[in-house]
Each structure stands twice: as structure tokens, then as C-alpha cells.
């Protein structure tokens, strides 16, 4: 479904990604594990069109998307939930969710998805009229994911969904990720928390200083000695 082939990205003279390739197949959760500054967010931004790779191609459903602007990438079915949640602070919860709806989807479908989002996150239904900026961190993360889902995406890009959240909320977010996937949602997950993401993902890539150094089935990577040493603290 999503094919990233040999992309390189640099900010000015500093290379951020170096010949990175990865593929995400329909219905899977794929995780990208790596420490701070490894280039994970850069990779996400390249996929969603916020930055354009200097070399390499990105294909989505057999169409090249690496030179499209973000709004066109979004309309093709890629929802990027960026790091830091990026809730519109002065819009209400329901207005934030409405911003996620693509005009091409139609009213009826939008209502169905909204019900599904409220089902996943009942707290959002309760706080519909509250301003986004006044929600707690965990609620904002739920809103950010919910807003991403409102476009009925073919693939959901989640960038650091556990960042800055209390452990109990992190568990809840990951439960939702698993649940979404069991409903058929394809997810590309970027996380510093390697253990959690390898637990929910089927396949994973390890990114270190801008290069993919390791990839494989998530269950196998959990037992890999390098991973254990570098990311799981064992």
C-alpha cells in the first residue's frame, strides 16, 4: 500500500534521512523504532508531504506522492497525527473533529465515523463543546487520533502518540491502536517507546541516525540482542 523507496532528506547541509526504504501492507501495524533525533518525524513528514525528499520515491496505492502538497496527500487517504498532538486550541472538540473530515466523504459517512470515534473515546463525546486547548494531555492525544480518523484514512500515521502521557493513558492509547487495527485500520507507528510499539506491531524498522539499521517481524525484533541493549534497557 505504502512504499518508501530509497529516500534521502537533508535540512540544509545536514542529512536527516539516508536512503531509507520501507513498505506498509494493507491491514498491518508497522512500527518505526528509534531514539530521539534518529529521523523518525522527518520520515513521517516526508510521507505526508510536509517536506519533499531530495532523492528517492514514495508511492501510495501505486501512485507517486513524493511531490504532492500535504492537502493532496491527505485527500488520497493518508492521515498524519503529528508529534505534539497539534490540537487547534481555540476550536471546540467537535470543531476540531470536523476539521478532520474531508469534503469528498459526504455527510452520512462523516456521521458514521464520528459515532465510531465517540465510541472509541467516549470522553470526547462528553466534552464536545469544550475548547481543545483546555483538554488534558491524554484527552488531546485522543482528540488528535480521533481527528485523524475523521478523514476515514486508508493509513494512519501516528507520530509519538505516547509522548508526555501518564502510563495509564499510554496503555489506553495503545489499546485503541490495537482495536483500530482489528477493525482493519492500517497504521504506521513511530515511537520512542520501543517495547510498547513492538508489542502491538506486526513488522518493525529500526532507524538510527537517519538510516534503517534493522527490520523484521516485531516478535523477532523484541528478542534481538541489539534491540534489547539499545532500546529495551536490558
Amino acid at each position: 500500500m505504502l512504499e518508501v523507496k530509497q529516500i534521502s532528506v537533508s535540512y540544509g547541509l545536514a542529512p536527516a534521512l539516508w536512503e531509507v526504504s520501507l513498505s506498509v501492507r494493507d491491514g498491518k501495524i508497522v512500527a518505526i523504532v528509534g531514539s530521539n533525533g534518529a529521523g523518525k518525524s522527518t520520515l513521517m513528514k516526508a510521507i505526508s508531504g510536509l517536506i519533499h525528499p531530495g532523492e528517492g520515491t514514495i508511492e501510495f496505492d501505486q501512485r507517486r506522492i513524493d511531490h504532492l502538497p500535504p492537502h493532496q496527500v491527505a485527500r488520497m487517504g493518508i492521515a498524519h497525527v503529528p508529534e505534539g498532538r497539534r490540537i487547534f486550541p481555540h476550536l471546540t472538540v467537535i470543531e476540531n473533529l470536523k476539521m478532520g473530515v474531508l469534503p469528498i466523504k459526504g455527510q452520512k459517512r462523516a456521521q458514521e465515523i464520528l459515532n465510531n470515534v465517540f465510541n472509541l473515546f467516549p470522553i470526547l463525546a462528553e466534552r464536545q463543546r469544550q475548547l481543545g486547548g483546555t483538554l488534558s494531555g491524554g484527552q488531546q492525544q485522543m482528540l488528535a487520533i480521533g481527528r485523524g480518523l475523521m478523514s476515514d484514512p486508508k493509513i494512519l500515521l501516528l507520530d509519538e502518540p505516547s509522548l508526555g502521557l501518564a502510563p495509564i493513558i499510554v496503555d489506553m492509547v495503545f489499546e485503541v491502536i490495537t482495536r483500530l487495527n482489528s477493525q482493519g485500520q492500517t497504521i504506521l507507528l513511530v515511537e520512542q517507546n520501543a517495547f510498547l510499539s513492538l508489542e502491538v506491531a506486526q513488522y518493525a524498522y529500526v532507524l538510527e541516525v537517519g538510516r534503517i539499521v534493522l527490520e523484521g517481524e516485531a516478535t523477532k525484533l523484541i528478542d534481538d540482542p541489539h534491540i534489547k541493549k539499545a532500546y529495551l534497557g536490558e
Binding site: S48, L50, P69, P70, H71, A74, R75, A79, H80, P82, R86, F88, P89, H90, L91, E95, N96, K98, M99, G100, L102, P103, R147, S151
Partner: peptide, 24 residues
């Protein structure tokens, strides 16, 4: 209106609005 919400959202976070499919 939906368009009004889009305008306010764009004022608050242009890049995010763009990511959500808005032609800013």
C-alpha cells in the same frame, strides 16, 4: 459554517490544517 471553522483553524495552526486536507 464549516468554511469559517477552516479559516479559524488555519489561523491557529496552518501546517496542521494543511495536513488535514485544507488547501491553505
Amino acid at each position: 459554517t464549516r468554511l469559517g471553522i477552516t479559516i479559524r483553524a488555519t489561523a491557529q495552526d496552518r501546517e496542521m490544517a494543511n495536513l488535514l486536507g485544507t488547501d491553505v
